[in-house]
Simulated scan of single mutants.
Amino acid sequence: MHIDLTGKTALVSASTAGIGLATAIGLADAGATVILNGRSSDAIERARAAVLARVPGAQLRGVAADLATAEGAAALLNAEPHVDILVNNAGTYGPQDFFEIDDATWEHFFQLNVMSGVRLARHYLKGMLERDWGRVVFISSESGLNIPADMIHYGMTKTAQLAISRGLAKVAAGSGVTVNAVLPGPTLSEGVRAMLEGAAKEADTSVEQAATDFVRTHRPSSILRRAASVDEVANMIVYVCSPQASATTGAALRVDGGVVDTIA
């Protein structure tokens, strides 16, 4: 299958590292012009260099904006008012005892993980519908289905993304615009690597092995029995953004290694 996104413009929020950066690389490799987003110009420049190292000649632009705020979203929309593909990847996570999570933390998780995507979709989806072609993808998580007891605030936001993406797919019914959610499972991103470095050092093992041990201990239903790579997750995202995925909409597409124990 050859995915050709030549002539399309794609925005990937929080695309300076992890799944977002891998997705930006995949979309650029398919020929799309990619808008990189991060909170600082330095981070965007590092991401630009990383994309060009994998895809020489890639067509790239960048906008520094903090999407945890309405002002940051407005700045991004003002700088880039039109896109054909929107990948809502911005988000934060981290384990915390439910009784220790204060209101400010709940609000921050909701603003960044949920409202960033709402604000961008509210703007860009209109143009996609007018042009009768577009792709909107929310990066949810298997934690939106299997709510972790130590990350209830995170799981809540990921479930919310599923509801929003399904509802927006219905808004776009009958058009050439699709809206979907992709649900990664444990993924060896930079953030997860940093989280596991201490455990790896303590066990005198590699971060990769520590990730495998984490999956087998804390996600025992995993069929893959290891963490996915960011490229493995990005492959699904790029496909959903492609013309070939024209009949896939309103879907929750799992790249979770079988963690969610269901056949549906």
Rank of each mutant, 00 (worst) to 15 (best):
M1W: 10
T6G: 14
G7L: 07
G7E: 14
G7T: 06
A14C: 06
T16D: 08
T16C: 13
T16A: 03
G18Q: 03
I19H: 02
A24H: 09
G26V: 07
L27Q: 04
L27S: 00
G38V: 04
G38P: 12
R39C: 07
R39D: 04
S40Y: 03
D42M: 02
A49H: 13
R54T: 02
A58F: 14
L60D: 07
V63Y: 05
D66L: 00
D66K: 06
A68Y: 05
A68S: 15
G72Y: 01
A74K: 14
L76T: 01
P81N: 01
H82Q: 14
D84N: 11
N88S: 05
T92L: 15
Y93T: 06
Y93P: 00
Y93E: 03
G94F: 12
G94N: 08
P95M: 12
F98K: 11
D103P: 01
T105Q: 14
W106I: 02
W106L: 02
F109V: 02
F110K: 00
S116P: 03
A121K: 09
H123V: 06
Y124R: 02
Y124Q: 08
D132Q: 10
G134A: 11
R135T: 06
F138G: 06
S140A: 15
S141G: 02
M151L: 11
I152V: 15
M156T: 15
M156S: 08
T157D: 09
A160D: 06
I164W: 05
R166C: 08
G167S: 13
L168S: 05
V171K: 15
G176R: 07
T178P: 06
A181K: 07
P186G: 14
G191F: 04
A194Q: 14
E197V: 02
G198I: 05
E202L: 15
D204R: 15
S206H: 05
E208K: 03
A211T: 03
D213V: 07
D213H: 10
V215K: 00
V215T: 03
R219K: 15
L224F: 13
A227Q: 10
A227F: 11
A227Y: 11
A228I: 03
S229F: 05
D231H: 13
A234C: 02
M236Q: 09
M236A: 11
M236S: 06
V238S: 05
V238I: 01
P243L: 09
A251N: 12
D256W: 08
G257C: 08
G257I: 02
G258H: 09
V259Q: 04
A264Q: 12
A264G: 10
